[in-house]
Design a protein around this nucleic acid. Structure first.
Length: 484
RNA sequence: GGCCCGUUGGUCAAGCGGUUAAGACGAUAGCCUCUCACGCUGUAAACAUGGGUUCGAUUCCCGUACGGGUCACCA
C-alpha cells in the first residue's frame, strides 16, 4: 500500500436491474481497487430512483456478487455507515431539500409542463430537448401553481452562454458549450430525484472524492459539475472508464450486451468460469499494470498494482477466448481438493455408473478451460461412439486397421485376466505384450485407445482411459471393436 | 443531425520525439509424450489516412476517414 498517496473515497452505485452486467462489475472493481490502492474508502450505494424498473431481489444479486468476487466495502446497505442510508429511495427527503435549495439559489426552477407537451416537443424535434418554457415563470405564477397543487418537476437552470470545462483523470480536459446542455430534470413529478441529481448530492454528502464510472457519462458530466459549482461544493475527481464492447458473429463491434452471449457475472459463473478468473480478466480490459508483463494477479496483488495512469481510453472488446485462457490457468492452479469439489459434481451429472469419476477428473485437470466443457469432452466415455473413418492408421506408430485388430485380439485375453486395474499395472501389462511381440508400445496403446474411445483425440492415453472406463466396459468395447 | 471521445497485429495491450515497435490470448511449426492437454522452443501478424511542427514522428498540432458515446420525469 502506497503511503504517499492521498486516500480516496470511491463508490459503486448500481441500479438494481436484476443482474450484474460484466461492465458494471468492472466499474465496481476499478472503483474498489482505486480506493484500496490508496488505503481509502469504498462505498456501495443503491440507485433505485426509477420506481418503475425495480426488480425484486436485485440488490441481493449485487451484494452477493461483490461478496463472491471479494470486493469488500466499508459503507453500504446492510453494513450501514455514517452517511446512510445507502439506498436512494430512502433518501427522498434529502433530495427534495437540496433541490429546493438550488431553486432558492437561482440554479433550478419549477416546471409545470405536462408530459404530453414534452412528448409533443420531442415529436416536433427529436433532438431539440426542452424549450425552457417554465424557466422564467414569475414567482407569483409558481406560487399559484404550487398552491393549486399542479404536478411539477424541478429542472436545472443551465447557463445560456459560456463553456463548462472539467478535467477527467483518464480523458483529460473535457469542454462543453453550455448551450449544448438541456435544463435537465432534477426532481421528478413523483418526488424522486433523477440520477442526474441524486448521485451528485449523494457523492457530495458521502464524501466521495473520485467518481469512477463508464465513459458514457463523459458528456453529461459538465452538467453535474455545474451542480457542484452552484452549490459551492468542491468538485470531485472524475475517472471515466473506456467502454466494454462485444463482437457479433459477423465481426461487428458494439457495446457489450446480451446479444453477445453471457454478459452477466452469474451467467459466466454458471457456465463454469471461476470468479477469480473473471475478475482477473476484466481487470485487464481497459487497464494495464506498469512495469510488468505478468497477467495473472490475485485481488490482493491488483490492489497493490492498480493506478489511474494505467487506464486506457479506447474501448475494449470482451474476448471469450482470453477469458477461457485465464480460467484454464486458474483451474490448473487449483489444488486437488477444491478442484475435485468443482469437477466431481459436474461429472456426477453426466457420467454413467461404470465411470471412474475421480480418475477422469484428474485427467481433466490440465485440459479444462471451463467447467462447462466437461459434459462435451467426456461424451465418449459415456457413450460408445460409432467408429468414424479410419482411426486405426497412425503413421508415427506405423499402425494399420488390420494390425490393430490383431493386437486387440491378443490383448483382450490379457486384459480379461488382469487383476489390478490401475494405470501403472495396465501400462506394464501392455508394454510387456508389446516387447514380446516386438512392437512399439505406442502402437499397442494406439490400437487400444482407439478401440476404447472411438475418437481420435482423447484426454489421457489408453491405459488412463481404461482406468476411467473400468474393466468391464473396457473389455466390452474391445470385443465390440474386434467384431466390427 | 449537433456535441463529446477514441484509433498500435484478429483480440487485450506496452510505448509517453530517436526502439530490431514489448508482452499476452488466439493461429501456426517443432520438442516432450501411450493420441490430446500440460510444459518448453520457434514463426507469422500492427502504428487508419493526409498535411504540418521538428534534424527526426507511432509519439506533438490540424484536417479527413472510420468507430463509439450522448442528446429521457433511465441510470
Amino acid at each position: 500500500m502506497s503511503e504517499n498517496k492521498a486516500p480516496v473515497c470511491t463508490r459503486f452505485a448500481p441500479s438494481p436491474t436484476g443482474y450484474m452486467h460484466i461492465g458494471n462489475l468492472r466499474t465496481a472493481l476499478y472503483a474498489y481497487l482505486l480506493s484500496r490502492a490508496t488505503g481509502g474508502k469504498f462505498i456501495v450505494r443503491i440507485e433505485d430512483t426509477d420506481r418503475e424498473r425495480l426488480v425484486d431481489g436485485a440488490v441481493d444479486v449485487i451484494l452477493k456478487t461483490l461478496e463472491v468476487t471479494g470486493l469488500d466495502y466499508d459503507e453500504g446497505p446492510i453494513v450501514g455507515g455514517p452517511n446512510g442510508p445507502y439506498v436512494q429511495s430512502e433518501r427522498k427527503a434529502i433530495y427534495k431539500e437540496y433541490a429546493e435549495k438550488l431553486v432558492a439559489l437561482g440554479h433550478a426552477y419549477y416546471c409545470f409542463c405536462s408530459e404530453e407537451r414534452l412528448a409533443q416537443l420531442h415529436e416536433e424535434n427529436e433532438n431539440g430537448g426542452y424549450d425552457r418554457h417554465c424557466r422564467n415563470l414569475s414567482e407569483e405564477e409558481v406560487k399559484a401553481n404550487l398552491a393549486a397543487g399542479l404536478p411539477y418537476v424541478i429542472r436545472q437552470k443551465i447557463p445560456l452562454e459560456g463553456t463548462t470545462t472539467y478535467t477527467d483523470e483518464v480523458f483529460g480536459e473535457i469542454s462543453m458549450e453550455n448551450k449544448e446542455m438541456q435544463d435537465q430534470i432534477l426532481l421528478k413529478a413523483d418526488g424522486y430525484p433523477t440520477y442526474n441529481f441524486a448521485h451528485v448530492v449523494d457523492d457530495y454528502l458521502m464524501g466521495v472524492t473520485h467518481v469512477v464510472r463508464g465513459s458514457e457519462y463523459l458528456t453529461s458530466t459538465p452538467k453535474y459539475v455545474l451542480l457542484y459549482d452552484a452549490f459551492g461544493w468542491e468538485r470531485p475527481h472524475y475517472v471515466h472508464l473506456p467502454l466494454l464492447m462485444g463482437k457479433d458473429a459477423d465481426g461487428k463491434i458494439s457495446k457489450l450486451s446480451k446479444r453477445h452471449g453471457a454478459v452477466s457475472f452469474q451467467d459466466l459463473v454458471n457456465q463454469g468460469f471461476l470468479p477469480e478468473a473473471i475478475v482477473n480478466y476484466i481487470a485487464h480490459l481497459g487497464w494495464c499494470p506498469k512495469n510488468t508483463n505478468e497477467e495473472i494477479f490475485s485481488l490482493a496483488e491488483l490492489r497493490e498494482l492498480f493506478s489511474i495512469d494505467g487506464i486506457n481510453k479506447s474501448p475494449a472488446v470482451f474476448d471469450y477466448e482470453k477469458l477461457r485462457w485465464f480460467n484454464s490457468e486458474y483451474i490448473k492452479a487449483l489444488p486437488d481438493e477444491p478442484y475435485m469439489a468443482k469437477a466431481l459434481p459436474e461429472l456426477e451429472k453426466c457420467c454413467k455408473p461404470y465411470v471412474n469419476r475421480e480418475a477422469l477428473a484428474v485427467l481433466l485437470h490440465s485440459r479444462l478451460a471451463c467447467f462447462g466443457d466437461i459434459e462435451e469432452t467426456v461424451k465418449f466415455v459415456n457413450e460408445r461412439l460409432p467408429m468414424e473413418g479410419d482411426l486405426y492408421t497412425n503413421k508415427k506408430n506405423k499402425t494399420t486397421p488390420e494390425g490393430c485388430k490383431e493386437v486387440l485380439g491378443e490383448v483382450l485375453p490379457i486384459l480379461e485376466k488382469a487383476e489390478a486395474w490401475d494405470n501403472d499395472s495396465l501400462f506394464e501389462l501392455l508394454k510387456a505384450y508389446a516387447e514380446e511381440k516386438g512392437l512399439k508400445a505406442g502402437a499397442v496403446m494406439w490400437a487400444v485407445r482407439v478401440a476404447v474411445a472411438r475418437q481420435a483425440v482423447t484426454p489421457g492415453g489408453a491405459t488412463e482411459l481404461m482406468v476411467v472406463l473400468g474393466k468391464e466396459e473396457t473389455v466390452e468395447r474391445i470385443k465390440l471393436a474386434i467384431a466390427e
